[in-house]
Design a protein around this nucleic acid. Structure first.
Lengths: 194, 194
DNA sequence: CGTCTATTTGAATGTACTCAAAAGCGGTGG
DNA sequence: CCACCGCTTTTGAGTACATTCAAATAGACG
């Protein structure tokens, strides 16, 4: 029982072995290829996903056709279109693999059953939720406060292999700038560091 | 038992009367004057607050001295510096009353006790957390996608009495623009509605 | 009434975008 | 294995959006 998903659970709550078994059996392991969609906008997000390995992108498409990346989900992250997952209404996001990845999926139905049998899981997902909330709040503050250059530098600092693994187009769509501007910014990067 | 805070609880979970009693007795009612700080940056947020009436502002002060408003908290909202409240580390936000207000405070210590006695409360706060997360995500998307004018119009649309109750300076700090620009924007408001 | 803060106005500047075109790169099929 | 196609990245010119700074005006509050 030394799987990453179990370790992740152990960081926040303690389960007995029966509970572990129950939790573990509610998950389905999936290997997915690059470009696979786990969630599509308009469809209902039936599951939430724990990423065992690989890299995925959660994004929206605006009316004007431009894509906006909500987040890049890496190893040891839980990810879904939460709005759709919890409300079981059509998703607004796409969730797509940027690399071949391994994920554990947990369906809404299974999770609701688990909540009844293991109330401690409410705590687990509440804590995950809180952490996500706090980091989102930071992002809002950053968007309001920092220049694009600053945000770009902070991003590659927090995520050093981003440049290797993610296209500039996608990085730009996460930073909220155009790919063209990101390109010109990189040229002048060393010059101005406000 | 027809208090607003109880109604709010009832929207998401059902408690029996003993549990209600317990929950209710963990809360403290406070009347606060305009400009009162419930949380100050640097101090530890010992409580989370349910707003029975009035209006509060949650904000940060940047290194350069400018204020950034995270949110305006109205009647029937739960608000705190969640980072500080959960981690019990120094807060990054200020929480200040913009109007004379009535709040219910729930301390971290009391809440942890409640979680043990009433596991269903984990669910309640998880749901609140989710909703907050979803609306934050919308805000990030809006910041990336929409023009300032659009965001301003959407804001006063969602919060029609904002103009009455909140200074322009504070609205600007919520929208992430300068008060000067908000001022010039309002002049031309009717002209361009992209 | 006077003081302090918020709002308005305007000029100059900077940041980021749009549009267009060229160059680079990766994957696929022959 | 190479050539081609399609997508990504670069580059540049012109423009729009938003900021800074400064100064005048208006409003709130003791």
């Amino acid at each position: 029982m030394d799987e990453l998903v179990v370790k992740n659970l152990n960081r926040h709550i303690r389960l007995n072995s029966a509970e572990f078994e129950l939790f573990r059996n509610s998950l389905k392991f999936k290997k997915i290829r690059k470009k696979t969609f786990l969630i599509k906008s308009g469809e209902i997000a039936k599951s939430t996903y724990f990423i065992n390995s690989g890299l995925l992108r959660l994004y929206q498409i605006q009316e004007d056709g431009t894509e906006k990346t909500a987040l890049f989900a890496q190893e040891e992250w839980w990810v879904s279109d939460l709005y759709s997952f919890y409300s079981q209404k059509p998703a607004v996001h796409f969730l797509q693999a940027l690399e071949p990845s391994e994920v554990w999926s947990l369906s809404k139905v299974q999770l609701e059953k688990l909540y009844l049998k293991i109330p401690k899981l409410e705590r687990f997902f509440r804590i995950l939720q809180q952490n996500a909330f706090i980091s989102q709040n930071e992002r809002i503050m950053d968007m309001m406060t920092k220049s694009s250059t600053r945000r770009y530098l902070d991003f590659i600092n927090k995520f050093p292999d981003a440049e290797m693994r993610i296209s500039q187009k996608h990085i730009a769509s996460f930073l909220g700038i155009t790919p063209e501007f990101l390109s010109t910014m990189k040229k002048n990067k060393i010059l101005n560091l406000p």
